[in-house]
């Protein structure tokens, strides 16, 4: 029983290791960066005007 559980865990670990999502990580960082830049731009406009 214990041996079976050990094997299952090992299999999951290997699958996660194989999935390569570097591009996704970079993409979500770029997306976050874009949101921050647009937000800060309008924030500066607000500070300038009010």
């Amino acid at each position: 029983m214990a041996k079976t559980e050990f094997n299952t865990k090992k299999k999951i670990k290997v699958e996660h290791h194989e999935s390569d999502l570097r591009g996704t990580l970079a993409s979500v960082f770029l997306l976050g960066f874009f949101i921050i830049v647009t937000w800060v731009s309008v924030w500066m406009l607000f500070l300038d005007r009010f």
């Binding site: 997306l31 874009f34 949101i35 647009t38 937000w39 309008v42 924030w43 406009l45 607000f46 005007r49 009010f50």
Partner: peptide, 18 residues
């Protein structure tokens, strides 16, 4: 992506004034 970014600006109270 730009639509969502604009939405965050709209919902921010002070910037909504802009």
């Amino acid at each position: 992506i730009p639509a969502g970014a604009g939405g965050i600006i709209n919902a921010s109270h002070q910037m909504n004034a802009v």
